[in-house]
Nucleic acid binder design. Structure first.
Length: 669
RNA sequence: GCUGCCGUAGCUCAGUGGUAGAGCACACCCUUGGUAAGGGUGAGGCCGAGAGUUCGAUCCUCUCCGGCAGCACCA
C-alpha cells in the first residue's frame, strides 16, 4: 500500500496502480469532475498516472489557474496538431508549446500544398472542436528511443525522428495517444506531458486560432522554415472573450495609429524606417530632451556633438566594421556627376560609414590632449543620432527604426571607480523612470558567443555590473533582477532596464555596459598616480535608449493622453459664440505668456463638435468660453479623462493650475 | 532577411476583365448653437512601381518597392 498525503495533511492509503483520479473520486464526484491533473511531490502529472510510491498529492483544478492554463494550452496545441494532420495528410509535426496567452504548433506542411494560411484556420478550428467533443482519452505510454525513431521514420516524420535520435539512450521516453492506442482514429505525439485525462476536458468554445507565420526549425535561421499556427486558449469562454477584449484595447493604444490621429509623425517608403516628426510629435521630443539635459547636467555629464560620418578605417579600428558591418550604412566618398541617377562607384573609392553608435567618436574626444587620473571619471554625453541598417522585417513604427537618437553617454573611469559609477547610474535611471511613472526590471546580459576580449576581462566586467546593482540595493525580486546568459553585446556585458507599460508589456530601454575592449582598440589612456599610462574603462549608457522608442512607449502607455508637461498642445480655448472671440484670444494670450502651449478654436462650429474634436486629439485642457465667461472673467474647464463634471474658475485660477501641471517633474517643488 | 497576408481619395474601407464608389476630413454657403459629430453644395484618384497575358488590366501572372503578423536579429 502507498501512503498519499493530501494538502490538509490527511493521509489515504491506496493499492499500487491507483491514480490521483481514484483519490479524487474517493473524495467526491464533484472533485473527480473538476480535477484536471495532479501535483505529486511538487511535480505536475497526469491524473491517470499511477503513483509510484508514497507521495504528497494536490489535485489541480481550474482554480489553480496558472497550472490549469498551462495544461489546457498544451492540450489545445496537441489537439490542433492532431486536427491539422487529419485534415492535411502529409503534414509533419514538430513542436507545440503553451505560451503566455495560448499556444502554437510548428508544422512542416506538405511541399505540394505550401505553408498554411489564415484561410485554413476555420476548418482546423472545426476539426479541433470535433476532436474535443469526441472526448478522446489521452493515454501516456513509455517507449524506448529506438521504438520511437522507428515509429516516426515509418510515418515519414523526419523532424520528430531527428529529435528522437538526439534524446538520451537508456531513458524511457513518453508518448501520448489521443484515443485508445491502436484504436481507429488514434493519434500519437512524443511529449513529456503532462496532459489532461481526455480531450473532452477542454472547452470547445474557449480557444481561437489567431494567426499563421513562419518559424525556423529549432529557432535557427540556417534550418528549414516551418509553418507555425498560433492560437489563444483559456479555461472557459468568458476568459477567452476577456482576452480578445484586451487585445482590442491594446490595438487602440497602438502608437502608429495614435501617431497618425494625433498628427505626431509619419513614416513613408522613401525613407522607410526613419521618422518624419511633425510639430506635435517633435514637441514631445523637445520636452524629453530638455528634461534629460537637466538630469544629465546635474549628474555631472558634459554634452558633446560628434560627426555623423567617419572614414571606414576608423570603424575598422574600432572593430565595428568587422562585427557590425552588416548593420551599417556605407557611403562612397565621391562627387556624383549629376547625370546618372546612381553614379558608378570605382573599385578603389574611399568609403565612409554613417555611425551606428556614438562610442568610437567619444573615445576620439577623450583622446584629445592628455588626461590625468585626477580628471576621472569623465562623463561625455551626446544626443547622438545613429543609423543602423536593420533587417527589414524587424522595422516596427517608432519601436524599431533605422535612424534613431540615443540619450547616449560614455563614462571614462578607473577600474576602482566602475562600481560607484554604475551604482550612481542605477539611481539616475530610477529617478527618470519614476518621473515618468514606469515600473521596470533590471537584467544582466552576460557574454555572448561572438565576442571581443579575454575571459578574464569578461569575468571582471560582469562582476562589476553585478556588484554595482547589489550595492544599489536593486538586485532583488522587486526590481525583477535576472541574469541572461549569452545576451551581452560583442564588446561588453550589459545591464538592461525593461519598462513595463500600462497594459503589462515590457520594453528594453536603458542600458549600461562596462567595456575594456574599445579603449584598448582605440588606444585610449590616462596618466595614473604612478606617472604611467593606464587604460580607462569605458561605460556605455543610455536611459531612454532611443527617443523614438521611448516616445512610442509613452504614447502607448498613456494611450495618447500625455501628461500635461509633455502634451504638444496643453490647452485649447474654445468659443461657444463669436461674441466671445476677443475674450478667448485674451485668455490664450495670457496663458501663452506663461510659457504654456495654447491654441484657440474660434471656428463657426457648435461646442459639441469642438469638444469631440479636441477630446479625440487628446488635448488635456479644454477651456470653454461663452458670453457668461467673457463677462465674468472665467473659463469653463473640461479636463481630458475626468468625468463630465465641469468647473467654472477664474482666469487667475486656471493660470495657477495649468502652470503647475505643465512643469516637468524635475522642476516641481 | 525568411513565411503568410495586404497595397483603391488626406484617413478608414467597399468594388468590377470594358479606365471607380462610401463615410470622415477638406473648400464654399446657411446656421451664433452651452460640453463627444447642425444642414446644404463642391472639389478631390497614373486603383504602390515595372513587365507580361488579353481586343481591352485597378482586377489575371511574374518581378520589384512598401506595410502588417510572426520567426530570426535588436535601442
Amino acid at each position: 500500500m502507498f501512503k498519499i498525503r493530501l494538502p490538509d495533511d490527511s493521509v489515504r492509503e491506496v493499492a499500487p496502480g491507483a491514480t490521483p483520479a481514484d483519490i479524487a473520486a474517493a473524495i467526491g464526484p464533484g472533485l473527480a469532475k473538476a480535477a484536471l491533473a495532479a501535483r505529486v511531490d511538487g511535480e505536475v502529472r497526469d491524473i491517470m498516472r499511477p503513483f509510484d510510491g508514497d507521495a504528497d498529492l494536490a489535485l489541480i483544478t481550474a482554480k489553480d489557474e496558472a497550472d490549469a492554463l498551462e495544461l489546457v494550452r498544451h492540450d489545445y496545441a496537441h489537439v490542433m496538431a492532431e486536427a491539422v494532420q487529419s485534415l492535411f495528410p502529409g503534414t509533419q509535426i514538430t513542436f507545440g508549446p503553451a505560451t503566455d496567452d495560448g499556444f502554437y504548433y510548428d508544422f512542416a506542411a506538405p511541399e505540394s500544398r505550401g505553408p498554411f494560411t489564415e484561410d485554413d484556420l476555420p476548418a482546423i478550428e472545426e476539426e479541433m472542436r470535433r476532436i474535443i467533443k469526441a472526448d478522446k482519452p489521452l493515454v501516456r505510454e513509455e517507449w524506448t528511443r529506438n521504438r520511437l525513431i522507428q515509429w516516426f521514420r515509418d510515418k515519414g516524420e523526419t523532424f520528430k525522428a531527428e529529435w528522437a535520435e538526439e534524446l538520451p539512450e537508456g531513458e524511457a521516453l513518453t508518448v501520448y495517444h489521443s484515443g485508445a492506442p491502436g484504436a481507429d482514429g488514434s493519434w500519437l505525439d512524443l511529449c513529456r506531458g503532462p496532459h489532461l485525462a481526455s480531450t473532452g476536458k477542454l472547452d470547445p468554445a474557449a480557444f481561437k486560432l489567431t494567426r499563421v507565420s513562419g518559424a525556423y526549425w529549432r529557432g535557427d535561421q540556417a534550418n528549414a522554415q516551418l509553418s507555425r499556427i498560433y492560437g489563444t486558449g483559456w479555461l472557459n469562454k468568458k476568459q477567452l472573450k476577456a482576452h480578445l477584449l484586451r487585445l482590442e484595447e491594446a490595438a487602440k493604444r497602438d502608437h502608429r495609429k495614435l501617431g497618425q490621429e494625433m498628427d505626431l509623425f509619419h513614416l513613408q517608403a522613401e525613407a522607410h524606417g526613419s521618422v518624419f516628426w511633425h510639430p506635435n510629435g517633435y514637441m514631445i521630443w523637445r520636452e524629453l530632451e530638455a528634461y534629460m539635459r537637466r538630469r544629465m547636467d546635474s549628474a555631472g555629464y558634459r554634452e558633446i556633438k560628434t560627426p555623423q560620418v567617419m572614414d571606414v578605417r576608423q570603424w575598422e579600428q574600432s572593430g565595428h566594421w568587422g562585427k557590425y558591418a552588416e548593420n551599417m550604412f556605407a557611403v562612397p566618398d565621391i562627387v556624383p556627376d549629376g547625370e546618372d541617377k546612381a553614379p558608378a562607384v570605382a573599385k578603389d573609392a574611399d568609403w565612409m560609414a554613417i555611425k551606428p553608435m556614438n562610442c568610437p567618436a567619444h573615445v576620439l574626444v577623450f583622446k584629445q590632449g592628455i588626461t590625468s587620473y585626477r580628471d576621472l571619471p569623465i562623463r561625455l554625453g551626446e544626443m547622438g543620432c545613429c543609423h543602423r541598417n536593420e533587417p527589414h522585417g524587424a522595422l516596427h513604427g517608432l519601436m524599431r527604426v533605422r535612424q534613431f537618437t540615443q540619450d547616449d553617454a560614455h563614462i571614462f573611469c578607473t577600474e576602482a571607480q566602475v562600481v560607484e559609477e554604475v551604482r550612481a547610474f542605477c539611481e539616475l535611471a530610477e529617478r527618470v523612470y519614476k518621473d515618468f511613472g514606469f515600473t521596470y526590471s533590471i537584467k544582466l546580459a552576460l557574454r555572448p558567443e561572438k565576442r571581443f576580449g579575454s575571459d578574464a576581462d569578461w569575468d571582471k566586467a560582469e562582476d562589476e555590473l553585478r556588484n554595482a546593482v547589489v550595492e544599489a540595493g536593486m538586485a532583488t525580486e522587486e526590481y525583477g533582477w535576472e541574469e541572461l546568459p549569452g545576451e551581452g553585446a560583442f564588446y561588453a556585458p550589459k545591464l538592461e532596464w525593461h519598462l513595463t507599460d500600462a497594459i503589462g508589456r515590457t520594453w528594453q530601454v536603458g542600458t549600461i555596459q562596462s567595456d575594456r575592449v574599445l579603449p584598448e582598440r582605440l588606444d585610449a589612456s590616462y596618466i595614473g598616480e604612478d606617472g604611467e599610462k593606464h587604460r580607462p574603462i569605458m561605460l556605455h549608457r543610455a536611459i531612454y535608449g532611443s527617443y523614438e522608442r521611448f516616445i512610442g512607449i509613452l504614447i502607448e502607455n498613456h494611450a495618447g493622453r500625455m501628461p500635461v508637461w509633455l502634451a504638444p498642445v496643453q490647452a485649447v480655448v474654445a468659443t461657444i459664440v463669436s461674441d466671445a472671440d476677443t475674450y478667448a484670444e485674451k485668455v490664450a494670450e495670457r496663458l501663452k505668456n506663461l510659457g504654456l502651449r495654447v491654441d484657440t478654436d474660434l471656428r463657426n462650429e457648435k461646442i459639441n463638435y469642438k469638444v469631440r474634436e479636441h477630446s479625440l486629439a487628446k488635448v488635456p485642457y479644454l477651456l470653454v468660453v461663452g458670453k457668461r465667461e467673457a463677462d465674468e472673467g472665467t473659463v469653463a474647464v473640461r479636463r481630458l479623462g475626468a468625468d463630465k463634471h465641469q468647473r467654472v474658475i477664474t482666469l487667475e485660477e486656471i493660470e495657477v493650475e495649468l502652470t503647475g501641471e505643465a512643469k516637468a517633474p524635475d522642476l516641481r517643488r
